[in-house]
Design a protein around this nucleic acid. Structure first.
Length: 571
RNA sequence: GGACCUGUGGUGCAGCUCGGAGUGCACGCCGCCCUGUCAAGGCGGAGGUCGCGGGUUCAAAUCCCGUCAGGUCCGCCA
């Protein structure tokens, strides 16, 4: 039907008769003797010159046959990739007429996202969406190539799976053949891939769709895509190597530049210096520890086991209202309050200044090499809380948009095994209950569980968690001790994970794995702040698909088939 | 479950503080003119439930309450 893409037509083809197909991006008529039609396809735009008038409108689908011609002197368009040439002596065939689109398919205009999503099929025609989804395809290809090259085998796992109540809320699918029973859509192929290890596929990967029925965010959709990896007879370092290779290959393909390094930091250091388990290394503003200087303080607001500070360069100019907002922010995160100190020429400007002892004033004045015009924010509390609050303020004040370069990759290792307790007073697994504790901390499981480190690790890019993984437990005795610590009885374990634990009795190899979010990675490569921009058909924050109208009610007959009856509204 | 922002011809915005006739701008759309434009240009025109409901008022896009939708965030996301 066509023999060239619009943007492939260049000066080497001058004189050739060429046919292109595409949409009318723009028509410019000059009376009844001359008209220009810009034809757009996935590659770009090409100008067709029509002698006489032509009855096409924006977004008509056309096939244009014309002779590739060098543009006359003075009519070259430098802003157009094909601006040196044009099609002349054109025959225009209308393949499909089109109503005026509800919005202009033009990357210059900002269009309300509601409108874009309702007409996503038109939105996808825009150059930005074409670029993003094609970038995504190239990243997928690079990831597959990297895994193939490292001798991994791609295996698909089921979407209809068994409920394993633990962790994220699952999407539920009623069974027609088994009335009253349900499948769930997997929040990840976690158990399936561990069983593949028992099954002898010692290097597995999959670009897998995962589904979690949790509230949506800029970086979270119900369904998202992970590069999912599991391997046997490997160490944590091996897995980190496999993943690093894949991510760096993808980065090189996407950005044209191979990142020079991926940093590594323990979880404890990340919390202590950045107040988060996903530090954004693109900017400093690290947390300063002033605990020693305030160990014997008489200032009530600053008397706490840990006193942490960050320096906001130039922050002394912050208005009082801004400082009040930051204080509210700190309180909403659980802090008792936020102490602020403007660094001035002759000391500190702060409501608390007159209560400070000299050495305390000096410690704040010199925090992080502060100078005149800077602002010092101080939080005093339990260690983890003080760190987290200041970490959040650090990001709120200092973080550039997530996709802004230079991109900084970071491995965070030695996550704690457990974090906090649930309503029943049981410890909760920080990663998941199959995570192997750190070899040096096995003795602490029963005596000091909150200080047990695990062999779990995260990959972080510009403050976004790309993914996480761990070395898995393959020994029944350790697994049993972890279940006990988590308050999971033998019966519960058997009913929830019985098939996995049963499988492990038949020769489970030591194994470890990882999974990272392709949507987030591609969004950052694409320069987008929101993963919806790299997903063809995303959902809104309330989980609606504005194009199809999903979710929708289903008919009485379909409900009956599924053995379902709806409860009255509001019950 | 909670906080905040947004909602005005097809699109993007202004108008909202301090109530006074659906007022304005740009793009698009329709018609006419135009033989080298390319964000074409000129002239003319059509197009509105100011998200929806209620309240206050002589009078509401504007003030108040509720609600719906979209967005950002907290909770949630082993």
């Amino acid at each position: 039907m066509r023999d060239a893409l619009c943007a492939s037509v260049d000066e080497t083809m001058i004189g050739e008769r060429v046919t292109v197909c595409g949409w009318v991006a723009k028509r410019r008529e000059h009376g009844e003797h001359l008209a220009f039609v810009d034809v757009r396809d996935r590659s770009g735009v090409l100008q067709a010159v029509v002698e006489g008038s032509v009855d096409v409108r924006s977004e008509y689908v056309v096939r244009v046959t014309g002779t590739v011609t060098r543009r006359p002197e003075g009519t070259v368009n430098e802003r157009l990739a094909t601006g040196q040439v044009e099609l002349s002596d054109c025959v225009v065939v209308i393949l499909s007429a089109a109503e005026p689109p509800p919005f202009q398919l033009d990357d210059r205009a900002t269009i309300d996202e509601q409108v874009r999503l309702r007409f996503r099929f038109l939105d996808l025609r825009r150059e930005a969406m074409q670029r993003n989804l094609r970038l995504r395809a190239r990243v997928n290809r690079a990831l597959r190539a990297a895994m193939d090259d490292q001798d991994f085998c791609e295996v698909e796992t089921p979407l209809l799976w068994a409920p394993t109540p633990e962790g994220a809320r699952e999407f539920v699918v009623p069974s027609r053949l088994h009335g009253g029973e349900f499948y769930v859509l997997p929040q990840s192929p976690q158990i399936a891939k561990q069983l593949l290890m028992v099954g002898g596929f010692d290097r597995y990967y999959q670009i897998a769709r995962c589904l979690r029925d949790e509230d949506l965010r800029a970086d979270r959709q119900f369904e998202f895509t992970q590069l999912d990896i599991e391997a046997s007879f490997v160490t944590q370092e091996d897995i980190m190597g496999f993943v690093s290779r894949a991510v760096l290959d993808a980065a090189e393909v996407a950005t044209g530049e191979r990142p020079t390094r991926i940093d590594t930091m323990t979880w404890a250091e990340a919390l202590d210096r950045y107040g988060t388990d996903k530090p954004d290394l693109r900017f400093a503003m690290t947390l300063q520890d002033l605990s020693a200087a305030f160990a014997k303080t008489t200032v009530k607001a600053l008397a706490a086991p840990t006193v942490k500070a960050i320096k906001v360069t130039g922050g002394a100019s912050f208005a009082r209202s801004r400082l009040d907002q930051l204080t509210e922010h700190a309180k909403s995160l659980g802090a008792q309050g936020l102490a602020w100190f403007r660094v001035s020429a002759d000391g500190l400007d702060s409501p608390l200044d007159r209560f400070l002892a000299d050495e305390e004033r000096l410690a704040i004045r010199n925090a992080d090499g502060a100078g005149e015009g800077d602002l010092i924010l101080v939080v005093a509390d339990e260690h983890d809380l003080a760190c987290r609050v200041l970490g959040a303020l650090r990001v709120a004040i200092g973080a550039p948009p997530v996709s802004e370069g230079p991109h900084r990759y970071l491995w965070v290792t030695e996550f704690p095994m457990f974090e906090g307790v649930d309503e029943d007073g049981h410890l909760m697994a920080a990663h998941h209950p199959f995570t192997m504790p750190h070899a040096d901390d096995l003795d602490l499981i029963e005596t000091d569980p909150l200080h047990v480190r695990s062999q779990a690790y995260d990959l972080v890019l510009n403050g976004w968690e790309l993914g996480s993984g761990s070395v898995r437990i393959h020994r029944a005795d350790i697994q049993s001790r972890i279940f006990t610590a988590l308050g999971i009885t033998d019966e519960e374990a058997a009913s929830r994970f019985g098939f996995l634990l049963g499988a492990f009795k038949y020769g489970a190899p030591p194994h470890a794995g990882f999974a990272f979010g392709v949507d987030r990675l591609v969004a950052i490569f694409a320069g987008e702040e929101n993963i919806r921009e790299v997903i063809a058909y995303p959902k809104t924050q309330s989980g609606a698909d504005l194009m199809t109208g999903a979710p929708k009610a289903i008919g009485e007959r379909q409900l009956r088939e599924l053995h379902l009856r709806l409860a009255p509204k509001g019950s």
